[in-house]
Every structure is written in C-alpha cells, then in structure tokens.
C-alpha cells in the first residue's frame, strides 16, 4: 500500500473541493473495496478524504412520490433491512443480503457498491502483466486466460471483466437514478448510463467524473416491485460472487405480463439491464415458455470463452427460474 495522507471531510462541499484539487485523491467510504485494492497495489491514491461522517446515511421517502432516496453512505446492511426497501423493493433487499458477508455489509456503502471494481483476476493482482483496465494497452489477460468468471454480454476485445455487485443488479432493474455533486453543482445520472461497457477504455468504468461525489441513489415508485426477486447462482451457498444473477420484477394482469423489469449480474462489465427480455415478456402469458423465449431474446447475442461458455446456459436457466419465482408470488 502506497503512502497517503488522510483527512476527514467536514462537509460534502469541502470533500468535492479537495478531490477536485487533487487528481490522485480518493474518497474513503466503507473501504471494503478501496482498501483491499490499495493492499493489492491496484489503487494508489496519494490522499484519502474520509467522507464517512457526512450526513448521507438516510433512507427516506421521496417527496411527492412513492419512491425512495438512499443516501450515499447508507450501509448495505441497513439498506437491506430498511422497511421502505423490504416493503417496496424486496429484490433490492435480497440482492444486498446475497452479497459479501454481514461484516462487509456493515461497512460497505451504497455509493461504494456502485463503484465496486471487477474481480477479474488479471485486474486484481498487478503480478499479472496484462490488463487493459489497470494498464491501458497492456492487453487482456483474461481473453485467453482462465476466464471462468468473465463476461458473455457487452464485452470488448479490450476487456471481458464483469461487474461484481449484487446491489447494482437490483438497482438496474429498478430504474434507479444516481445523484452526484460536483464543482458545478448537482446532477443526476440514470442508472443505465452510470456504468459503462468496456469498449476501448475499460479503465473508465462509470460516467461519474473524478471530481464528483455520489450523494444518493433515487428509486422511483414501481408499485409492482413488491413482486420481485433476486436469484444469485454461485459456487457455494454463501459469501461468493455470482456466476450469474437475475433481478426480476413482474406486473401481471390476469395471467399476462403488463410490465417487467429484468437485470442480470455476473455476465457483463456493468449491471446488465435485460431490455430484450423485458420486451419479449410484455403482453405475454406468464408461463415457462414465455420466460424461455424471453431469456433467449437477451442471450442470443451472448458470446462465451474457453471457460465461461456455461454462463450462457446458466443465465438462460436463471432468468427462467427468477421469472417463474416472481410469477408464483402472491
């Protein structure tokens, strides 16, 4: 871990100012990913600005709507069990609780989870020489390496890493909006635009500017999200990253699907909103055949590699399973 200076931000304005003034400064939130990456020598900030004491840890109803606003520093554990979340967005609660461990969830923050970096082996350990994300132009070690945990959708020749978050998959399905503060004031970023596909610049993972601070995530009112579910498929029963995961919500009307929200995890460089699946569901009967066709619609474009081709079939099944579970909910 490289040396750095540490300071505690008194308010968000000061935090933004300090980060804007120092390109190698970073905000310290829960630290569960940043400190880990600093120990690995992947992240090397010269300065850490501790934002943990900023008053951004509330979950509240959004004025004038049935949506909620989640403060950037709400811990994953608190968010998972917040009554507004469990009652209105069970898929988010399930996603959070399927991630990491109780200890890590007590530290990890909402904003930090948005910025969680990939678990790609070739990225995470600088002993591996090739990683375009870590060192642009060095090549992708995973492409012809051990790529069991890698992407099948939206990847590029530059990078086939996946986004590791569970929370974000649920938020992608829920049409979340990310609120950020920067030197020019506040702006909002629709969730679909927050994370980026790797393209030619896999090192640029989000559309957040380096001098911006996430202050909150808004979840719009989605009444049918009470009928939602997060399915995570992993190698062991708990405390493991997803091979594939599915966040799903369905609005049914007389056995037909009126609206659908589906997002996938473990398959792409960003939480993958399965819009083709959603389109294929609308107006159809909520039955396994529909679900199968809807899964196919999304996965037709999927491409596997030597060790991860199984994810295409696994994702297909996981989508069917998740949708079936949601359809059976009262």
């Amino acid at each position: 871990m490289n040396p750095f200076t540490y300071s505690r931000a008194a308010d968000w304005q000061g935090a933004v100012h300090d980060v804007a003034a120092d390109p190698s400064a970073k905000f310290l939130g829960g630290g569960t990913n940043l400190i880990d990456l600093m120990k690995m020598g992947v992240e090397k900030p010269d300065r850490l600005i501790d934002i943990n004491r900023l008053p951004l840890a509330q979950v509240e109803e959004m004025p004038g709507s049935a949506g909620i606003r989640i403060g950037a520093l709400v811990r994953n554990s608190d968010l998972a069990e917040h009554p507004l979340v469990t009652s209105r967005y069970p898929v988010l609660s399930e996603a959070l609780l399927s991630g990491a461990s109780p200890q890590l969830r007590n530290l990890a923050t909402t904003a930090g989870n948005l910025l969680q970096r990939t678990r790609c082996y070739y990225f995470y350990d600088p002993a591996f020489p090739m990683c375009n994300k870590r060192q642009p132009g060095s090549g992708c070690g995973a492409l012809e390496g051990y790529n069991r945990i890698h992407a099948i959708l939206g990847q590029s020749e530059q990078c086939i890493a996946t986004h590791p978050s569970d929370m974000c998959v649920a938020m992608a399905a829920l049409d979340a909006v990310v609120r950020v503060q920067g030197p020019k004031g506040e702006r909002t970023i629709p969730f679909a635009d927050f994370h980026r596909l790797p393209g030619d610049t896999p090192g640029v993972e989000t559309n957040l500017q380096p001098n911006e601070l996430i202050t909150a995530v808004d979840l719009p009112a989605i009444p049918f999200a009470t009928r939602s579910h997060y399915l995570k498929v992993r190698d062991r029963a708990s405390y493991a990253f997803a091979l594939v995961s599915v966040a799903a919500a369905l609005e049914l009307e007389g056995g037909n699907i009126k609206s659908a929200r589906v997002a996938l995890g473990g398959v792409a460089h960003k939480p993958w909103r399965a819009t083709k699946t959603e389109q294929a569901l609308i107006g159809k009967k909520a039955d396994p055949e529909t679900f199968r066709a809807a899964a196919e619609a999304e996965l037709a474009a999927a491409k596997g590699y030597k060790y991860n081709s199984f994810k295409i079939e696994l994702a297909r099944r996981a989508i069917i399973q998740a949708l079936s579970t949601v359809a059976k909910m009262a």
Partner: peptide, 21 residues
C-alpha cells in the same frame, strides 16, 4: 493462468472453502 502459471484465485474469496451455509 495458462500463460504465466500463476494461480488466479490465491485468496479466500475465490478459492471456495465451505462456509457455514
């Protein structure tokens, strides 16, 4: 890793020993 011969999962997050669950 088939090229470098380095273990890709030399950690307890990705070398999966059983959990309580």
């Amino acid at each position: 890793d088939p090229k470098t011969g380095m273990p890709v999962n030399p950690n307890l997050a990705e070398y999966h020993v059983p959990t309580n669950a």
